[in-house]
Design a protein around this nucleic acid. Structure first.
Lengths: 219, 219
DNA sequence: ACATGGATTATCCAAATGTATAACAGGGTC
DNA sequence: GACCCTGTTATACATTTGGATAATCCATGT
């Protein structure tokens, strides 16, 4: 009966922490916060439950860190879309919009993860700050792209347009992530480009068929 | 020590069921699914925990019924907006859009409730069906309003436009519900009308200042 | 080699949770 | 006013949860 103690490897602090964070995100994305128990997280990360409290003060602490990493990752993904694209304002805007409406941004797990954190964001002041910063960063980036277009627009108009385009992108992202089978592969990106163009009075459709997401898979 | 048994009233089945359902929705909206324990639900509804299983086969059964009532209520609210409005297609569309972007549809509790159910919807086939039906009902209603506009548009274009406008409304609804203080009172409704108009090539702004939500509080 | 520190596991504990069942009592019926 | 049905409460129970602590054993330095 005296079963041997489970074999294990000592890993660096970074490896263990990121493994626990990833496990937490995956579980929340799949089954909501209720599925992210310390035991489930530990099992997913390949360790035992006690280790969580060795790296994090509490389970809530781990959840908070996991959310912060999620938001930081999404904002980073947003600005990444602008790399390797030309300097023309409309082309840059089109790249930004299209990238937000295609995988891997469009993803059922991401929206599940985001939804799972909704309440914690509304009740935890630190998380609320993280959320608002990330949200405004994204919208400001969008507004900057819009402002660079060759048009005449005052500040109030730019703000309204940024809110509208941001809302459109968010809504399409939501629908595409929840009901992926309800849309053709690039349908949402095309619709997004056409609609953003209509809202702003420019034509973004010439950039619709630009390397959807292929060729950009280095490594 | 033999404290007297708690006084109570016998209520009709409808009263008790709706009280339990409302309590469940409120708790999920406020604190997520994890906050909706049988004891918390019972306390909120003014009864004791055991009564839940007198009216519902299980807690999951109660959660499911509460979600179904939520979705049915939202679709009903959508069609209600069309009552008491003229027969002009653009006016009806404007009323529909504006109603979706003002209280009480814009509401932090509603988005919290919706988010709280996300995972259950993705894992429970019955709930997934309820969700998809409600979603498509809303989008189809929108598409019908768009199709009634005096324009020339084929089926594919109508579909794309309905998806775009639905996404726009969803996104603005989301942002307005999460960060209500970030927008002026009717800012989102105005932006929604202008943007939907731009997407469809019509002018909905004449209907922007139509009885925001006042005068419609009978009783 | 070998001792030391700390990463990791194993075990325990109190609290909370969903469910089941028995006891009670409100309110209509005769 | 006595009686019975069932809505309602109270209690019990097995399971799961997050947290705490002690025991172990991997890896590194010397």
């Amino acid at each position: 009966m005296d079963q041997t103690r489970r074999a294990y490897r000592r890993e660096s602090q970074e490896v263990r922490r990121s493994a626990l964070i990833t496990a937490t995100q995956d579980l929340v994305a799949e089954g909501g916060p209720q599925a992210a128990t310390v035991r489930a997280i530990a099992a997913r990360a390949g360790v035992t439950a006690g280790l969580i409290r060795h790296y994090f003060r509490s389970k809530d602490d781990l959840l908070r860190v996991a959310y912060i990493e999620l938001m930081e990752g999404m904002t980073a993904a947003g600005s990444d879309a602008l790399e390797g694209v030309g300097a023309q304002p409309d082309e840059r805007l089109a790249a930004f919009v299209a990238a937000s409406l295609r995988p891997p941004v469009i993803d059922g797990g991401a929206v599940g993860l985001w939804a799972g954190y909704m309440h914690k964001v509304r009740s935890d002041l630190e998380l609320l700050g993280v959320h608002e910063v990330a949200y405004l960063q994204y919208r400001d980036a969008l507004e900057a792209l819009i402002a660079a277009l060759p048009r005449n627009a005052n500040a109030a108009q730019l703000r309204a347009e940024a809110i509208a385009c941001n809302g459109l992108i968010d809504g399409l992202w939501l629908e595409g992530s929840i009901l992926p089978h309800a849309f053709a592969p690039d349908e949402l990106a095309t619709i997004g480009l056409r609609s953003v163009g209509a809202i702003l009075g420019v034509d973004l459709m010439p950039y619709a068929n630009q390397l959807p997401d292929s060729g950009k898979t280095p490594k």
